[in-house]
Design a protein around this nucleic acid. Structure first.
Lengths: 160, 160
DNA sequence: GGTGCAATGATATATTATTTCATTTTTGTC
DNA sequence: GACAAAAATGAAATAATATATCATTGCACC
């Protein structure tokens, strides 16, 4: 089985290929990855955990770049639309996208213990879900799924 | 197959057994279903759609009962804890609980079209989800799952 | 009917997010 | 390069959602 799970985001991965991928993706989409957008995406990548909008604003300021909430939310909206980031509804927080979504849709696992998010890219899981939901009449196209529970680390700490 | 899906909440179901059940449940739990709590629960039942906290405050006022946000959120917290209501993170809204959760956990389907929520109580779905997540190392005990997609009505309107 | 605790009231404030209009920056054209 | 158009950002105000704190009321039990 290929590894279907990648922590979101990988801590300290700021210099990794994701940044480069973002450049390419924006080029393909014909949209601009401006300095602010690039910086916010990088902050998300380096954070190692979901970040709240105003936390990102703080980190920007620490980095010498002062932006208003409006700009922050506009930028997050941009990143969401380009598929470069995801919003975690359970936390009002944001993570960079790290998966390819082969499986057809977004599946985010949020740990109730450590509050970290994992983006699952697991066709087996997604397909079985879609199949069963289909039986019940629900359709899952472009859907997003958010699951709260215990991540592998926290799960191990508790039961094993 | 027994009907695994119940709309949350059933429109106009204010006088149904849910209210009575709530009384019994609170008695069992040794907690008080006060006038305010009863009324808010009833408003949720009658709404026919997820309600936001401040919307409930408005409906209370229309009914001649003026409460503050603090009381509203305290009451919602109470209803959530007793399992009488659920919070929909995607909408910042609340629905009454209408399922028994035989399946072991909460699974809410939120329609991206009509914004209505359906509480799915489907062991097949839940078990397959839990099984596959277990393989990946994630644990689902007491978990909540929130899925966004198209509900049967809206799904039919679009594709069929 | 008094004591103690749970529930609510009241007030303030924190947190999250959007609206509106002005200004700056970038892009495309000449 | 100069210009116009479009996109992005700045700035200010405010809306929407949620919590903290302390006072008061109401209910349960003795």
């Amino acid at each position: 089985m290929k590894a279907p799970v990648r922590a979101v985001p990988a801590a300290g991965s700021g210099g990794c290929s994701a940044a480069k991928d973002a450049e390419e993706l924006c080029a393909r989409h014909g949209v601009r990855l401006t300095a602010i957008r690039r910086k916010i995406f990088k902050i998300l990548l380096q954070a190692g955990a979901p970040l709240k909008a105003y936390d990102i604003i703080d980190r920007m300021r620490e980095d010498g770049r002062r932006i208003t909430p409006a700009t922050m939310y506009r930028t997050l909206e941009f990143l969401l639309q380009q598929g470069l980031a995801h919003r975690i509804n359970a936390l009002n927080a944001y993570v960079p996208c790290t998966a390819a979504h082969d499986s057809g849709g977004l599946l985010l696992f949020v740990c109730s213990d450590c509050q970290k998010a994992s983006e699952l890219n697991d066709p087996v899981l997604y397909d079985s879900l879609r199949a069963r939901l289909g039986v019940l009449g629900f359709s899952l196209d472009n859907a997003s799924i958010e699951i709260q529970g215990a991540c592998p680390s926290c799960s191990a700490g508790k039961s094993g």
